[in-house]
Design a protein around this nucleic acid. Sequence first.
DNA 1: CGGGATCCTTATGGATACTG
DNA 2: CAGTATCCATAAGGATCCCG
Lengths: 140, 140
Amino acid sequence: MSVDFEKHLEAQKKLAQAEKLDPRVETLVHEVIARVADKWTMIILDVLAEHGELRFKQLGRLATGISQKMLTQTLREMEREGLVIRTVHAVVPPRVEYRLTDLGLSLGTAFCGVWLWAEQNLDVIESARAAFDRRASEAS
Amino acid sequence: MSVDFEKHLEAQKKLAQAEKLDPRVETLVHEVIARVADKWTMIILDVLAEHGELRFKQLGRLATGISQKMLTQTLREMEREGLVIRTVHAVVPPRVEYRLTDLGLSLGTAFCGVWLWAEQNLDVIESARAAFDRRASEAS
DNA sequence: CGGGATCCTTATGGATACTG
DNA sequence: CAGTATCCATAAGGATCCCG
């Protein structure tokens, strides 16, 4: 805990300074994080990181529950941010393949800290929820 | 850091397997990440990590742009997940203070990787956007 | 001060139909 | 196959009023 806390504070200070030096950066960082934090972006990133290059429909099947609309939309946005490469093969039927760029891949890596955290703390969170809900119903 | 990376790779493989083995865990992880990835949760987490314990209104001022409704709502959810502690002082006028739990703090730390990534790749992303938009307007 | 309850507007996203 | 376009339901979120 204390080691984590030290590290945390250091990183935090750097961030705080950066924010004060350039508010434009802060905005963009929030923007980028918001995009990245998006449900489908996260899942697609995950699927592409696992499977490499995939076609549109394959991607749709692997990203369980996504609608075709959101798949297209999310992929376009990710392409715009430079996270994925879209390759169109001029054949019939059309064949379009998507893969992560180096940037996309590095983002996946950066996000792993959060994944690990979530995985490691599932139990803690579940019991926290249960405790909260219990207190809430007692209060009523 | 390389140790973290090793751990990351291992965990990644486990995650890939775990998804197939236990869809319930995957769901919960996604849930947690979605909550955490939420715009306001992220900002509040950031503010609390920087300033320590804060009162409701202070929090509202520091989390620029948030409405009182979203502030309350987000704080309740974070409290439920065990990320923040809410302390009510029985005085008039009421005084309610919020601070991060260890879990909340560790989440902030986990998220630092993403913050750093975003900060480091701002330029890359901006030019990727510009390039994409240029291509898009050429195509029309 | 710290909210809860309500209204109302906008944004999000699914379903469907159509196209090169 | 890989989309685009349209419609529609629901949810998210801001503004406002009120209360202990």
